[in-house]
Simulated assay, not measured.
Amino acid sequence: MDSVEAEHGGVQPVLTALKGTPAEIAPSTYYAQKSRPPSARSVRDQILVEQIKEVHVKNLEVYGARKVWHEMRRQGHQVAKCTVERLMRAEGVRGVTRDKHPRTTKPAAETERPCDLVRRDFTASRPNQLWVADLTYVRTADGWVYVAFVLDVYSRMIVGWQVSISLYTELALDALQMGIWRREHASQDVAGLVHHSDRGVQLRFKGS
């Protein structure tokens, strides 16, 4: 009620308004509570909160209650795991949630599958002879992102890539088109290029 006193010039109007209601508070009860010193538990909780926040910040704010508790124990702080959980919840301190790994390949048996033009022979004797494509995912602070990339087998260089928060069919095609544009922009010949990808529907387009 301290804020009420500051804004309205005293707590008495509030106590008067509450009189006769289920929330009625006797003036003596209010002033006794206000003058009472902090309990030993509240004092210790405040110390623990500072220690918890320090551990959380030093670990890039990714630790949840279990890891914070383990770290505090390693530092010699005697505290129960449930206490750490309670204080973190009260202070709104959270770790990074471990999401389930997303799927990058979605088979589609009903569509035509291009032939394997390289017959599993992933070698090349010159640049722009064979490119291979793949999809992967990366976890960021804001969630999972998908990355499609195309690699030149001869140089092991990534020639094209594309990043998206959703897995759409054109993602891999955009990465391929980027690679072709970059090589053509550098006046390199891509005639006869073979592009190889897996059998996921996102990567299913014919190389030539």
Rank of each mutant, 00 (worst) to 15 (best):
G207C: 03
S197E: 00
S39K: 03
R183P: 05
A26K: 07
I25P: 04
P127G: 14
L167A: 02
N59Y: 10
I47H: 09
A26Y: 07
S164I: 12
F205I: 06
L171I: 09
M88I: 04
D189K: 01
Y31A: 09
Q162Y: 07
H70Y: 12
V68D: 00
I52Y: 01
K67L: 12
G76H: 03
M157E: 15
F122G: 09
G95L: 04
D142E: 14
P107N: 10
P38W: 07
L60D: 13
K106Q: 09
P27T: 04
A186K: 09
M1Y: 09
A141R: 14
V147K: 01
I158P: 05
Y168C: 15
T104D: 05
D99C: 13
D121S: 10
R41V: 05
R73L: 06
K100G: 06
K206R: 13
T140G: 00
W131P: 00
L18M: 07
V201Y: 11
A175I: 02
S39H: 07
R199Q: 05
Y30F: 12
S166T: 15
S35Y: 06
P114C: 00
S187V: 14
R73Q: 09
V159C: 11
E184N: 06
S125I: 10
T97V: 11
T140M: 07
A175H: 00
V159H: 07
G10N: 08
L87K: 03
L151K: 12
M178E: 08
L171V: 09
D198E: 00
Y30A: 05
P27C: 02
V118I: 05
H56P: 02
G10E: 06
H101N: 11
E170S: 15
R113P: 05
R44T: 04
T136E: 00
V55G: 06
T140C: 03
G200C: 02
L135I: 08
S208A: 11
R126E: 09
S3A: 12
V55T: 06
L167V: 04
W144V: 03
T123I: 10
R182M: 10
S187R: 15
Q12E: 13
A186M: 10
T97M: 10
T104N: 08
G200W: 04
R113V: 13
H77L: 07
K34D: 11
L117H: 02
D189W: 06
T16N: 13
R98V: 12
L87W: 05
R204A: 11
K34S: 09
D2S: 06
R126H: 12
L193P: 00
T140D: 01
G9E: 11
D121H: 09
Q12A: 14
L151N: 09
W131A: 01
V132D: 00
V147Y: 02
R120N: 10
S3G: 14
I52F: 01
